[in-house]
Computed example of a mutant assay.
Amino acid sequence: MNLLLPVLSLALLLSGPIALGAELLRFSSGAAPTPVLELFTSQGCSSCPPADRWLSRLREHPQLWQGLIPLAFHVDYWDRLGWPDPFANPAHSARQRGYARSSASRSVYTPGFILAGREWRGWFRGEPLDLPSGAEVGTLTLRLDGDSLRLAFDASATAPAGLIAHVARLGFGLHTRVSRGENAGSLLTHDFVVLSLQQIAARTPNRWITRLPHEPRGERQAIVAWLSAPGDLAPYQAVGGWLPRQRPGAR
């Protein structure tokens, strides 16, 4: 009998993200809330490229996915300046305005950062990213089989009623040559770009099912999901991880 095989199997089970066969992926959060860092940005904003480059460096953050989930929401309200951002979405602008209405942010501007549901201005002062910690709320698990996605939340505390799930597909290594507007002549590169975003109500308590839309853009992609209480934009718990690299010609 080969005693090494059970040891290897146990190591794989304890390693966090799990790939079973060619299709099935599973990612699980810890019990404490995973901090989500949201950047509201635009290719039509001349002060945004430095923030975009800083966010891209978080690809190498030692706590990526397990202790930090960055998201880049491209807004559309600067498109009128002469360059329509190809990743902009009115829903992203509405999300940022929602933070301002709830007083989580003082105003609507780019680049603008929200960390764990609250405005974060440390980037402008050159401060290190100080990740918040919170009491345990429960574990969020994401399972992806092809384009079929399931979320399950096992609460370790009294969770808000009617939790809503959000699922985002992120693109990395996205390049755009800008020909007009404030960044005319620049070649911009983006990571953590929200390419698609779904909001899902639970079918049964703390269980959500959806299909992930096809979105081919990017040299690499990741999947992120987070929960929020009704009427509250702040992520309650979040989970994410890398998607397998697509084979050339694969769809």
Rank of each mutant, 00 (worst) to 15 (best):
L3Q: 09
P6L: 07
L10Q: 02
L14N: 00
I18L: 15
A19Q: 11
G21L: 09
A22I: 05
L25W: 11
L25F: 10
R26N: 01
S28A: 15
G30D: 07
T34D: 03
P35M: 02
E38L: 09
T41K: 11
Q43E: 15
Q43F: 03
Q43M: 08
C45G: 11
S46I: 07
W54A: 15
R59Q: 15
P62H: 06
P62D: 09
L64K: 08
G67I: 01
A72T: 07
F73P: 07
H74C: 01
W78E: 11
W78P: 05
P84K: 08
D85P: 02
A88G: 10
N89V: 04
H92L: 01
H92M: 02
A94Y: 04
G98C: 09
Y99A: 13
S105G: 15
S107R: 14
P111W: 00
F113Q: 09
I114R: 01
L115K: 04
R118H: 08
R118S: 14
R121N: 12
R121V: 12
R121W: 00
R121G: 10
F124D: 13
G126D: 07
D130A: 15
L131G: 01
T139H: 00
L142T: 03
R150T: 14
L151W: 04
A152Y: 01
A157M: 07
T158P: 04
P160Y: 04
G162V: 00
I164H: 11
L170W: 14
G171A: 04
G173S: 06
L174W: 09
R177Y: 10
R177V: 13
V178H: 06
S179H: 11
N183G: 09
A184V: 05
A184S: 14
S186Q: 15
L187Y: 05
H190C: 02
F192C: 03
V193Q: 12
V194H: 11
L197Q: 13
Q199N: 02
R203D: 15
T204G: 06
N206K: 11
R207E: 15
T210C: 15
R211W: 03
H214M: 03
R217W: 12
R220S: 14
A222R: 05
I223P: 06
V224D: 12
L227R: 07
P230Y: 04
D232C: 14
A234M: 05
P235G: 07
G240Y: 07
G241C: 04
R245S: 13
R247Y: 08
G249N: 03
